[in-house]
Design a protein around this nucleic acid. Structure first.
Lengths: 154, 154
DNA sequence: GCCTAATCGTTTGACATCTATTGATTAGAG
DNA sequence: CTCTAATCAATAGATGTCAAACGATTAGGC
């Protein structure tokens, strides 16, 4: 059977993402939140998403998963869900004042983490890394969710 | 509060890894397996790990998680766990013939997937990508598990 | 030999995620 | 207006993962 020559790039990616993700989880936990919570807050604050459907698409998770997260966040007083008047299937999600404060606390932590990740990278290297990652995503053949900073899809 | 300038690199990494991982999961599922199962088989076949402790360290998951995976694999007849004679705390894990066959089926699928991921990359680019990913891992400050292809740690 | 600390694997419970299904609502055709 | 198909969110169950706690075993000091 074929033995992969050199390190399978997918394994490297998964391993690094796991480790970086764990560190980020710890960072967000220290700020009182969690990664799913941060992603929801970020989607709402960025204005890229307002309905549950949009948030789930934006983050790249399933609607069922988001329902669970929002249930917890609403119970915690961070968001409020209301039915959209023109289409009662749709739940619109809005941040509460407490949610705004939570975002602020986590945004600072997230920014510092990002700066930390960038240590030792030149602008050109970051640009190349971004390009490489996108190419991997395309090669995998899965159409990923739009992420903050991506050009708005048509 | 500081707004991250440009796309946070950690989010890009997490998003791409999620998408690539999902595609890999689908690939392995089509071959009759799953990613955790593949990682365990790979660790055993590579000779890098024999005890549960070693496998968990090698893959980068907790011992509790591995216990669950191995329970399923043993029930499926893919592995056999035995107590090491010189230290009865330690479980040694061995592949069965069925486990060998499963590995063969999945190795081919994994190899093709890896080739697919590498499409459009030059050797130099792959080398740079590997370097960048390792740097991210170091920057995150989490000592990751040794992965197949890494130099053996002292 | 006795005791304490460390190690290994297992069990329990919680979190995040997905698939499949369901109920409510809306869209579109006739 | 009626009916079918599509959409949105919620529910239930399964998978993968982790932390904490536990029991069994080993290591090391006295």
């Amino acid at each position: 059977m074929p033995a992969p020559r050199g390190m399978p790039i997918g394994l490297r990616l998964a391993g690094v993402a796991r480790d970086v993700g764990r560190a980020f989880d710890d960072t967000l936990a220290a700020a009182g939140g969690s990664r799913p919570l941060w992603m929801v807050l970020l989607a709402l604050k960025s204005g890229a998403a307002a309905s549950q459907q949009q948030i789930a698409d934006h983050i790249g998770i399933r609607g069922a998963t988001l329902t669970h997260h929002l249930a917890g966040m609403e119970a915690r007083g961070l968001v409020v869900r209301t039915r959209e008047p023109g289409d009662r299937r749709t739940q619109v999600v809005r941040l509460t004042d407490e949610g705004e404060r939570m975002f602020g606390a986590m945004a600072e932590a997230a920014h510092e983490f990002d700066q930390r990740l960038r240590a030792g990278f030149t602008k050109a290297e970051l640009s190349h890394l971004d390009l490489f990652l996108r190419r991997l995503q395309e090669n995998a053949g899965v159409r990923g969710a739009a992420l903050p900073g991506d050009a708005t899809p048509p």
